[in-house]
């Protein structure tokens, strides 16, 4: 068994890859980004342009988790993050990436890619079209730049929509060794075969030369801070006391 690169074996193909994750708070994507940028950091001059983009939804881009996934903070210097809080913003970010990304871009990720498009503030009639446009743009971007575009979805029904645009769909399957990524519809294999790669998500995970603690574990457990509330909402929920 290969003990040195258990998380890094997976070579993502260029184009859109859907990762079906067990929960919106899954930190698998963080680890994959960390692993990918660790690999490329040796080849790239950190002074050059951004090489990876993270289009965030639902406050997934926990910086502590990302830093925990790399042995040196510098590894993440080429990552650019922007958060969307509405589907409109998400769609705009996807379009913005098409303008900013270039040949040097190695990776684009969009966790919970379909999630915001199901919020109540987006009218029913607009959802499908806006999401389709975002996914199509991402898929096209993957083809044009020949770089992997990783998106995740924790919701099965939405995952089906996303899968229509994805070149590859990977499922996260829980095994005794941890979580294993397998191509959709295939059985998890025990050897580190071509089918998938294991990510140990038990107490900690092996990272090259040392054990990291499991910040992802408590992010899963507690989540990031609850969705920020406006003071008005806080009042509506009886959380606030204000005296004139």
């Amino acid at each position: 068994m290969d003990t040195h690169t258990p998380t890094l074996g997976l070579e993502f193909e260029s184009g859109l890859t859907l990762l079906e994750v067990p929960s919106p708070r899954s930190t698998i994507l963080h680890r994959l980004v960390g692993a990918r940028l660790t690999e490329s950091a040796t080849e790239h001059d950190p002074e050059t342009n951004a090489t990876a983009y993270w289009i965030d939804a639902r406050n997934t881009a926990a910086t502590q988790v990302l830093y925990d996934c790399v042995s040196s903070d510098r590894t993440l210097e080429s990552l650019r993050v922007a958060r969307a809080f509405t589907a409109y913003q998400h769609h705009s970010l996807v379009r913005r990436v098409t303008r900013q990304a270039g040949p040097e871009t190695e990776l684009i990720v969009a966790p919970n890619v379909a999630s915001l498009y199901h919020d109540a503030d987006l009218p029913e009639w607009e959802r499908e079209g806006l999401l389709a446009a975002a996914l199509e743009t991402l898929a096209e971007l993957g083809r044009v730049l020949s770089c992997p575009i990783l998106v995740t979805s924790a919701d099965e029904n939405r995952a089906d929509t996303v899968a229509e645009y994805a070149a590859t769909t990977l499922e996260c399957v829980r095994t005794r060794e941890g979580i294993r990524l397998v191509r959709s519809g295939e059985e998890p294999t025990d050897d580190d075969g071509e089918m998938g790669s294991a990510i140990d998500d038990t107490a900690g995970y092996w990272h090259g030369t040392h054990w990291q603690t499991t910040i992802p574990y408590w992010v899963d457990l507690y989540g990031a801070v609850a969705e920020g509330q406006s003071i008005v909402e806080a009042y509506d929920r009886g959380l606030l006391e204000v005296t004139a």
Partner: peptide
């Protein structure tokens, strides 16, 4: 009518400091 304008892409250090 809608909130289209997203935040800018920033590096992780900025996000970490700001958020």
């Amino acid at each position: 009518q809608n909130k289209w304008e997203p935040e800018r892409f920033s590096d992780l250090r900025t996000l970490h400091a700001a958020d």
